[in-house]
């Protein structure tokens, strides 16, 4: 594990929690992430917009090493993996992954475990907390996402929105340095979208650092500190939401925003 030493100009207080430098990734010879760099500071929300196939999911999965980049330096809360130097050690990958948590598009709750045990599992197995401690933390996390009282249900017995809120509780309970969201509302029935977006907004207001891949423009504008627009594996625009969403500089982003707006009238 490489501990990043605080350089002269960056004190630990304003050092980024997540830093991605020169990230590249290809699948079968096709480069889907082409030299992407960005940073996220403590307590900030970064939203990532972009058309389907632009590499958003792949980039997110590189940050918790579910995907192995071809090159690039990724640092999460002081734990760095330099993929330019070849395959990192498994224990370093684990160390970095344990600084993150992920909310998947299809929730991916542990099917065979109850709501409570979905949340306590990582606490018990990975963080080695005892039963009482794990259940107390899980209780708080479930409370935060409005799922108290459903602890004994299996995922299959919940709506999509409820499952996604449990998966947010599971991420939150691990107390990670950053939570990664991959289109958390895309698989939901329209009437379930808002309950999840509200939950995410609550989480953001607690000062949790978040990277959110989303097509929910209004959410991105209301909650993010920074918005990135990706297309073809590159960052095309980046900045504050009122700048990127309300004053797009490129035709590609304008087209993309128009296509999202027109979607609602189809």
């Amino acid at each position: 594990m490489t501990e990043l030493s605080a350089s002269a100009e960056a004190t630990p207080a304003d050092a980024p929690v997540v830093s991605v430098r020169g990230l590249k990734k290809s699948f079968g010879g096709v480069e889907v992430i082409k030299d992407v760099s960005f940073e996220v500071s403590q307590g900030q929300v970064l939203s990532i917009l972009g058309p389907s196939g632009s590499g958003k999911t792949t980039m997110l999965r590189c940050i918790n090493a579910l995907e192995r980049p071809d090159s690039g330096l990724i640092t999460v809360d002081g734990v760095s993996l330099d993929y330019g130097k070849g395959k990192p050690r498994y224990r370093d990958i684990l160390a970095q992954r344990r600084k993150t948590a992920m909310v998947f598009q299809h929730y991916n709750l542990f099917k065979n475990k109850t709501v409570l045990h979905n949340v306590t599992e990582g606490l018990a197995v990975v963080q080695r907390k005892n039963k009482q401690e794990a259940e107390a933390i899980a209780g708080e996390a479930l409370e935060a996402v409005g799922m108290s009282g459903l602890e004994d249900r299996f995922p299959m017995h919940l709506s999509g929105g409820q499952q996604q809120r449990v998966s947010i509780a599971r991420a939150l309970a691990l107390n990670p340095s950053v939570i990664l969201f991959d289109e958390p509302t895309s698989a939901l029935d329209p009437e379930r979208v808002n309950e999840v977006l509200r939950t995410m907004k609550d989480i953001a207001s607690r000062g949790v650092t978040m990277i959110v891949v989303t097509h929910e423009i209004r959410f991105a504008r209301a909650v993010s500190d920074t918005v990135i627009f990706m297309d073809g594996g590159r960052i095309v625009e980046k900045g504050a939401p009122d700048k990127v969403i309300d004053h797009p500089q490129t035709d590609r982003l304008r087209e993309f925003l128009n296509s999202l707006a027109s979607r609602e009238f189809e």
Partner: peptide, 25 residues
């Protein structure tokens, strides 16, 4: 489902922990 492995990994589990706690059951 592959997603079961991946969410176990995303929680920080090792391959063996994911197998023992989530997949094998």
């Amino acid at each position: 489902d592959r997603g079961q492995w991946e969410s176990a990994y995303a929680c920080g589990m090792t391959r063996f922990q994911a197998l023992r706690r989530v997949v094998a059951p």
